[in-house]
Design a protein around this nucleic acid. Structure first.
Lengths: 155, 155
DNA sequence: CTATAACGTACCAAATCGGTCCGAATTTGG
DNA sequence: CCAAATTCGGACCGATTTGGTACGTTATAG
């Protein structure tokens, strides 16, 4: 399964590109050209990010977009949330009726804990960090499960 | 955005229910009844889990399903992976062509790091842990961001 | 006043997801 | 040995969501 939607992925790419060239205003069209993404989609994403206060927009001729804050103070989580909405693991509130009756569903707090961990994983990385070359987090890779590096999709 | 698909959520519910009554064989129909989920869907999920080796199936009359291993040695990540496929954040290999040319896309290792963190968050919780009442992980909640506890969906 | 560029909304197409069904294989019980 | 029960493994379809587009409006620069 893929966690981030394609749009969110695009959003991070766009934001990262802007972070790479700070204090330079760039139009949606130019950004689409630079990232090789469909122009209309880029405009849509920029709009969403502007709505979330991540980027500043200047209208009219010679207008364009710019990061609203420094690249260090914008996290990947914010970009994703601006596009896909807030991050949540499950919508387990759907079937609580009977499930709650039989076992009282004690899983809820655990879901919340996992949720928090995921959110922090995304919040821990800033746009600035995304454009720094390598870093290579040491010995976090688990040799027992080969799927960690290369994402695979539901067969 | 919701990370886990509804199916994966169901799968965890089913697996958790089986973990609550270990070494008792149960048919797909009975499981559907107990969890109040559509019967055909439960059968499908059980099938997927059996394929992944998480549950053992016994055919024929008086057949049914049973956890293949102890509830402590099965993680939520495994259940999710059995249903939704392996967990990956992005499919960023789609647009690498031009993106790689302009900035060499140094974001990849960072994605991998985030990916690993998410995977571990899911792998850290076993089915056994899911059925233990509360635990309440202490002071992990961030008071600054109110979205952490209650999952919200894309508006 | 005109050209440019963001804004907002509405809209369409397509892919994926959630869910159903049916036939085949297998085991228990009579 | 036969019949009922139950999983297995496909194919299959409908509907929600997602990805992407288009158009008209607003605002700024020259």
């Amino acid at each position: 399964m893929v966690i981030l939607s394609k749009l969110a992925d695009y959003g991070v790419i766009i934001a990262t590109h802007m972070a790479a060239f700070p204090d330079r205003q760039i139009t949606a069209a130019a950004l689409a050209e630079a990232t090789q993404l469909p122009q209309a989609t880029v405009a849509k994403l920029l709009k969403a990010m502007a709505h979330a206060g991540l980027v500043m927009a200047t209208r009219g001729a010679t207008g364009g977009y710019r990061l609203a804050r420094g690249a260090k103070s914008i996290s990947v989580a914010e970009v994703v949330a601006a596009i896909d909405g807030d991050i949540g693991l499950t919508q387990c509130s759907v079937h609580v009726d009977e499930c709650a009756r039989t076992t009282y569903c004690p899983t809820r707090p655990h879901w919340a804990a996992i949720n928090r961990a995921v959110g922090q994983a995304l919040a821990a990385v800033s746009l600035d960090a995304m454009i720094t070359p390598a870093v290579f987090a040491p010995r976090t890779a688990r040799t027992t499960s080969p799927e960690a590096d290369e994402p695979r999709y539901s067969a």
